[in-house]
Write a protein that binds this DNA or RNA. Structure first.
Length: 274
DNA sequence: ATTCTGTCCTGTAGGC
DNA sequence: TGCCTACAGGACAGAA
């Protein structure tokens, strides 16, 4: 579910809530979410470890232990990390797959309705193939206008598909790809290498602006996304085209069009975006 | 080499 | 109410 703004929101909340805390107990309710090891081995690796680092890489959350090693969480479509005080079975949901109990009387529940999410323990981050292949972070220093201009020239895929390709840029998903292109006035099926200088300029600004505004709004809750308090993100109120087929464009009142690109629903205004 | 399609799962919304 | 189909914030293997 979560894209960059949602994962960043979760990460920032976790820094407030579990940094420097110790994992004192782990309850694996559904072993299917642990991909690379036996659940017992996973528990052995993570229990009694103190969290000394919390970061985000692309759409993954990295929790580093003072004793070495990393807990890596990729929530994918429907993964949630929800904290609560109180009893262990409080806040339990059908989708709750793992419960982490922390030294500050906090429980951290990993919920995942569709079970696409992945949780790994690794000794080194390079053991995770995803980290080896993802492109630059769109809010990081490597992403700048000259880089984008040059990178776009190398691809002839539809710009929307390319924006979602994690090896190109890490963090943009299906919602924000459509929103970014609406703000750039660029049609999603336009080929990446066909964009003109002015279009690349507005695309560059839209990527930065949409993602940072969405972080300020604590992400978008279309369906499943929740922050660590179980609350919805507020960017849903600023979504202009995603999921709004046949509703009127906020700019020109033309009905929003839905098409499928690379197998994913794509929304745009054929009047405003050319 | 790049780009696209099918798959992994569960749950929900909408049509009839 | 129930049954059926389509679709859902991702990533990756394999095919084109």
């Amino acid at each position: 579910m979560p894209e960059l703004p949602e994962v960043e929101t979760i990460k920032r909340d976790l820094v407030e809530k579990i940094f420097n805390k110790r994992i004192i107990n782990i309850f694996v309710l559904d072993p299917r979410v642990i991909r690379n090891t036996d659940p017992k081995v996973f528990i052995q690796h993570c229990i009694n470890k103190t969290i000394s680092e919390i970061s985000r890489q692309g759409k993954a959350i990295v929790i580093g232990f003072r004793e070495k090693g990393y807990l890596v969480i990729q929530p994918m479509m429907t993964g949630q990390l929800i904290c609560h005080n109180g009893r262990r079975d409080e806040g339990l949901e059908k989708a709750t797959k793992i419960i982490f109990e922390l030294s500050n009387d906090l429980y951290l529940n990993y919920n995942d309705q569709r079970l696409f999410g992945r949780i790994h323990f690794v000794k080194k981050l390079k053991e995770i193939a995803y980290f080896q292949t993802i492109g630059p972070d769109p809010l990081g220093p490597k992403f700048n206008f000259p880089w984008l201009k040059e990178a776009l020239q190398k691809h002839k895929a539809p710009i929307k598909s390319l924006l979602m390709h994690q090896n190109f840029l890490a963090g943009i998903g299906n919602i924000y790809a459509s929103e970014i292109l609406f703000r750039s006035h660029i049609a999603p099926q336009r080929l990446a290498n066909s964009l003109r200088q002015g279009e690349i300029r507005s695309l560059y600004k839209a990527i930065k602006n949409v993602l940072s505004e969405a972080i300020k709004s604590r992400g978008t809750s279309m369906r499943n996304y929740r922050d660590t308090d179980g609350k919805k993100g507020n960017f849903i109120h600023r979504i202009r085209v995603y999921g709004r087929e046949n509703q009127r464009c906020p700019c020109c009142k033309t009905p929003i069009t839905r098409i499928v690109l690379s197998g994913r629903s794509t929304f745009y205004c054929h009047q405003c975006q050319t």
